[in-house]
Design a binder for these strands. Sequence first.
DNA 1: GTTGCGACTTTGAGTCGTCAAAGACAAAAT
DNA 2: ATTTTGTCTTTGACGACTCAAAGTCGCAAC
Lengths: 219, 219
Amino acid sequence: MPTSTVENYLKAILVRSSDSDEVVAMGVLAEALDVTPGTVTTMVKSMASRGLLEHLPREGVRLTPEGRSHALAVVRKHRLVETFLVQVLKMDWKEVHQEAEALEHAISDTVLLRIDELLGYPSADPHGDPIPSRKSTLLERGRGVTLATCDLMKPFRVERILDQSTPFLEYIQKTGLKPGAKVKVSSRDRASGVVRCDLKGGEATLGLPEAAKIEVKAS
Amino acid sequence: MPTSTVENYLKAILVRSSDSDEVVAMGVLAEALDVTPGTVTTMVKSMASRGLLEHLPREGVRLTPEGRSHALAVVRKHRLVETFLVQVLKMDWKEVHQEAEALEHAISDTVLLRIDELLGYPSADPHGDPIPSRKSTLLERGRGVTLATCDLMKPFRVERILDQSTPFLEYIQKTGLKPGAKVKVSSRDRASGVVRCDLKGGEATLGLPEAAKIEVKAS
DNA sequence: GTTGCGACTTTGAGTCGTCAAAGACAAAAT
DNA sequence: ATTTTGTCTTTGACGACTCAAAGTCGCAAC
């Protein structure tokens, strides 16, 4: 029974390593978890000694199968809880990430199952992030087409939002670029870094890095 | 933002002191929280320095208004969560105490409000324990009539179960003595310590201390 | 009154997660 | 080759929570 701190380390590593054998750098973790590098080193060593990950000194960290499966369980909890908060408790999708951050460490498997059942075994959360199944051994990465890479003037549908920060989600909400929305990129200018797109109810303008956080699918 | 340990201390003190000026002994807390007496002394001193309670050395402990209001909020969370787990997630009422024990420290006020709303502002949890309102400043104590004290051969209704331990609740469930059930005490023998009662669907026998954990109301 | 006993407190120590600051290292720049 | 730079590790320390064991207190019984 890992502590919630350990769970957060596991989750941070998992979502930053698509390939199972990709190494996550210590600095990346320090940044993600908002602790000092020294803290990460200490923590990682203790997790390594518990068999949750491999520590390659001065290189980074890689989950073991055990660590990976634990991390997946945490991500699953997080995303199911988010979905639950939005669908059942009618909460604002912009807030639920925060809430789920706390709840994911407190919810038992029993409760999680009930929630999953109640929701009808959803496959994605309100941001479009896939919910790992109970058995899955790897996390699907959103490496698809985004508003920063898709063809111009062709119809797409928003699949997934790759950034959970409240300000970004607020902007998404304002423009209507939520998962499911139909969208067409009308112009994209590398030089100015501006992406303009049309969607039902108006137009939206955003920077290239931001556009890259909106995954779309041909529709 | 007290830690969940502090919240557990607060809760333990609250539910053990009906009168606001009643003192709870250190030993009682050590027992309740399953820690050594020394730990309680240390913890209590630190909570006293934060203004959550008064420590009367070698006597016990008394909540300050601030500590009390915090403790009430925790109890409110606990009981609302229990109710939610039973009514919405259809969980077994025997299990929910455990679950709520963890969840009560992780749920935000926002989520709690939604739950309260969804449930229609219930006034008691599945065990019959009253749910403190958002503003209440004292915890209603179950000092009513119980199967150990009520009149014989008169009709009563089970109001509240004063013990949340799974084995006890299992027995309650088996006999059907759940809150709401109609019951009549057919015999009570001080000497043998046996209480026998009739209810729809059969008879139930229990010891005096156990009978005292079932609060009833004339019906 | 002294004694004994049970309840409470103190002390010394350990774990967990954290930081600041100093040290070590590797890869890039010169 | 040497220096620089940036990343990573080590070290010493601290706060929160805990225990075991030794010490202290108050009171009831003798």
